[in-house]
Amino acid sequence: MDIVVLVKQVPDSGLERNLNAEKRVDRDGSNNVMGELDEYAVEAALQLKEQHDGTVTVLTVGPDQATETIRKVLAMGADQAVHVSDEAVAGSDALATAQILAAALGRANWDLVLAGAESTDSGMGVMTHLLSAHTGAAALTGARKIEIDGSTVTVEHQKDNGYSKLQAQLPAIVSVWDTINTPRYPSLKGIMAAKRKKIEVLSLSDLGVDASAVGAAGASTEVLTVESRPERSAGTIVTDEGEGGRSLAEFLASEKFI
């Protein structure tokens, strides 16, 4: 079974994140990591390969420095990589990104595409369905469990109050939540092996995508203003020396919660 796993490099959510002067995510500097949920998609891909053989290809659309994220996925155990990198991609919205990813998927043979349920920067949580609309493959989103039997894929789609069991025929596109598994760390051997694995770098023209249809030029949405939310200022902090619960009750009574 041939699997493509979609991975997006994002700014580390544990650090200060900003939009730049162009009102795009500031991706400069060294604070970039693999999308947190994408790690779970990679792990799911590797486990499925262990069960069913085949290949795992990582696909990313992003600037040059996204190679670091690709190397990490290769070190975890993916076989090869496709990196779409082109100046004209900058400023793409969801529709344009989906168009580029769909074009790249169109050049590969795959039975299954795995992705994060949402990215951890813009986090729209829509890519799987957009790609389904483009490729015609079934979309099974928000999986907390995935099983492949022959050409049938079955997932437990996680909901707020339970789950639905979804089933489709391959080829299919599945996105995953962090409840699905525990991602592995790259081993030293994996890190060494990753250096020899192939990363195919593609431009928009390699993909036959019209540069004016994507990026800032082709965007169908526009960010107008950006503001910082006023920081919540810290309130009163007391140390419990036997009266902590009572002082908390005082506070809650003064705020009319008691």
């Binding site: 919540r232 810290a234 309130g235 009163t236 902090i237 007391v238 140390t239 419990d240 036997g242 009266e243 902590g244 619960g245 009572r246 002082s247 908390l248 009750a249 506070f251 809650l252 008691i258």
Partner: peptide, 24 residues
């Protein structure tokens, strides 16, 4: 969490919460 709390108690929750319940 304290940097965003309107009211914070530095202490063991197994002491603070039972006392809060008593007060309520």
């Amino acid at each position: 969490i304290f940097s965003m709390a309107d009211y914070g108690v530095v202490g063991d929750l197994f002491n603070v919460l039972p006392q809060l319940l008593e007060e309520v």
